[in-house]
């Protein structure tokens, strides 16, 4: 059994209750982030982890950091993540299939080893005294205390970091700037392409989705005259997401027509 020797002083009971309620929730949300399939769900769980961490910061007398955590991380960074998720869309990389064989067991073993090492290290470290607490340091107020440090001892790092921030913003603009390589075809060219192309199959445009007179919705492929579904009648995004019904269930003879469908 590990001897978790470190002791830096007991906290007040309300903080203990807060910790034991929120810490399992935080760990569960972080684990869920690993395990859920969809990236959007991961983002939501990540946001909840960040809010929980903000509560921990505030509980530890770091009021300024707690507020910054909510405003910057949960507000700005996670929204940026969600924006990019919507921009990039959902694709096959969301799946949880293992691409390198044996990666997952190795990762789990390594993680258990690393985590065990960290926990036992923290447990064996001794400080020799109790936690001092921030009452003295925060006597003028937390924001004032941080400002005093930031604009005296850390003023040079502060300037450097601001330069980094501006550089990052410029870099993002350069990277995200899109210069189209080919000229976009005009309506006229598209029309010519349809009629002068190899086949006239799509001359009248792509088939519309939905099974006529049975189920009219964008998530059901149209039926060709021989009864097979027309794949190009459905938006490719719906196919990739798997939000697609098969038109087979609406074939003649499979739908129970004896019951009226009045709604």
């Amino acid at each position: 059994m590990l001897d978790l020797a470190i002791s830096v002083g007991q906290t007040q009971t309300p903080e203990a209750v807060l910790f034991w309620v929120l810490a399992p929730l935080t760990v569960a949300a972080a684990l869920g982030m690993l395990l859920v399939k969809k990236a959007v769900h991961s983002a939501i769980l990540m946001a909840s982890v960040m809010v929980n961490l903000a509560v921990f910061y505030i509980a530890q007398d770091a009021l300024f950091l707690g507020i910054v955590q909510i405003v910057v991380y949960t507000g700005a960074v996670m929204m940026l993540f969600l924006f990019i998720l919507m921009l990039v869309g959902v694709d096959s990389s969301d799946s949880l299939t293992e691409t390198i064989t044996g990666l997952r067991p190795i990762a789990i073993v390594a993680a258990v080893g690393f985590g065990g090492l960290m926990v036992s290290l923290i447990g064996r470290a001794t400080l020799g005294r109790n936690a001092i607490g921030l009452e003295a340091a925060n006597s003028l107020g937390n924001v004032q205390g941080i400002a005093q440090l930031l604009f005296s001892r850390y003023v040079w790092p502060f300037e450097v970091v601001s330069a980094l921030l501006i550089t990052a913003a410029l870099g993002a603009m350069v990277l995200a700037h899109h210069q189209s390589i080919q000229v976009r075809p005009t309506q006229r060219q598209l029309s010519t392409q349809r009629f002068r192309g190899k086949s006239l199959a799509n001359a009248a445009g792509l088939p519309a989705p939905g099974v006529f007179a049975r189920h009219n919705a964008v998530d059901v492929p149209a039926l060709l005259p021989d009864g097979t579904p027309a794949a190009n009648s459905i938006n490719a995004t719906l196919q990739a997401r798997g939000d697609m019904l098969t038109s087979g269930t609406f074939e003649l003879g499979k739908v129970d027509t004896s019951k009226g469908e009045e709604k």
Binding site: V8, G9, F19, L34, F56, G115, I122
Partner: peptide
């Protein structure tokens, strides 16, 4: 509760992130 519990939580979250 000991204040060092935050350190254990931090180590745990770091490990989970590394696995991810």
């Amino acid at each position: 509760m000991d204040a060092a519990n935050y350190l254990y939580l931090s180590a745990l979250l770091f490990t989970i992130g590394a696995v991810g």
